[in-house]
Amino acid sequence: MKTGYDILIVGIGGQGTILASNILGEACLIEGRPVKGAETHGMAQRGGSVESHIRIDGRFGPLIAPGTADLIISFDLLEALRYAHYLKAGGEIFTNCAMVIPTSVYTQGVQLPEEAEIRKRLDHQNTCYIEADRLAQEAGSILSRNVVMMGAASGSIPLGNESLRAAVAKLVPPKTVDVNLKAYDIGRDAGRECGKSHRSA
């Protein structure tokens, strides 16, 4: 029987997926819950597609199987599509609506699907589109994009809001705590708004 709650965080190397997974891990520690995770390190981080698996209440291996993730958090629209098959039926996706165009599109002429088409292909899932780049700027730094996204998804994560905020405050560089907490809160509001509309839709 599937136990626990499985979250896949995806993005591009350098966007802070590892920090995001650490926030979840730390929040689990705060709540005394077991957690397992797996992530991409090494060369693949150089601007490549990266994934972090986090299994809250996880007791076995660190990897989430395709078709079984409860939640996908994506820092890039195209990456949401790349990993959407990990979602279980009835799971949720929170994705940044911005997209970085892979260099392969320029150098090798690979065809890039239109943004509208990507959305169409994601829309049959419960998908929330978050303007994470704009909201991160609003919070004070584009670098807080990852924390905006964690805030946005936080309403769906089975961890307390206070535990998640405490984890953010503990893990981000000391000088950026205020910016990041603001990013988290802005993200949380945006996620709540979006959650309402996609549930009513």
Partner: peptide, 19 residues
């Protein structure tokens, strides 16, 4: 004891290798 759904990745997503 656990069954896994058969799922395959979305088609035609441009690769994003490390650069």
């Amino acid at each position: 004891a656990v069954k896994f759904p058969e799922q395959s990745p979305a088609a035609e997503v441009p690769p994003r290798p490390p650069i």
